[in-house]
């Protein structure tokens, strides 16, 4: 598991460096995730148990890691902005509508691709 954590930190570092020096608007950890994914896909050997455990551990407590960022939301009220109600309404409505439409679109597209390639699905 320690080796696994080391691998995650290594790719986080590579991602941060790539993001910083390339000037890409994508943050370091996302680049790190993409690079680690590519590495795992290309390597022929099995995924090491240590890395699997480390990732499983991090993801299991992902919600905890978001708590400090979420707390920030309650302290935004101090920002002089009178458009609070509108902003909240917009977020709730547009998020829910987007979720509904996107879910149905994906369901439709998946059913359609299944019809053309019935074997690929299984």
């Amino acid at each position: 598991m320690l080796k696994g954590l080391l691998v995650l930190l290594l790719f986080q570092g590579i991602g941060e460096a790539t993001s910083h020096y390339s000037g890409l608007p994508i943050p370091g950890p996302v680049i790190g995730m993409i690079l680690l994914f590519i590495y795992l896909q290309l390597s022929r050997s099995e995924l090491s148990i240590g890395l699997g455990d480390a990732a499983h551990f991090m993801i299991r407590w992902l919600s905890l890691l978001f708590v400090p960022a979420c707390v920030g939301f309650f302290f935004l009220i101090k920002i002089p902005n009178k458009q609070w109600v509108a902003v909240t309404g917009v977020i709730v409505i547009s998020t829910l509508v987007t979720m509904i439409i996107t879910a149905f679109l994906m369901k439709y597209l998946m059913a359609k691709s299944k019809r053309f390639k019935p074997k690929a699905e299984q």
Partner: peptide, 16 residues
């Protein structure tokens, strides 16, 4: 915790 959020993002590569 903010730092580890980055590490957890990298970890998403494994389930993927």
């Amino acid at each position: 915790l903010f730092f580890l959020l980055g590490t957890a993002t990298v970890a998403l590569a494994i389930p993927l």
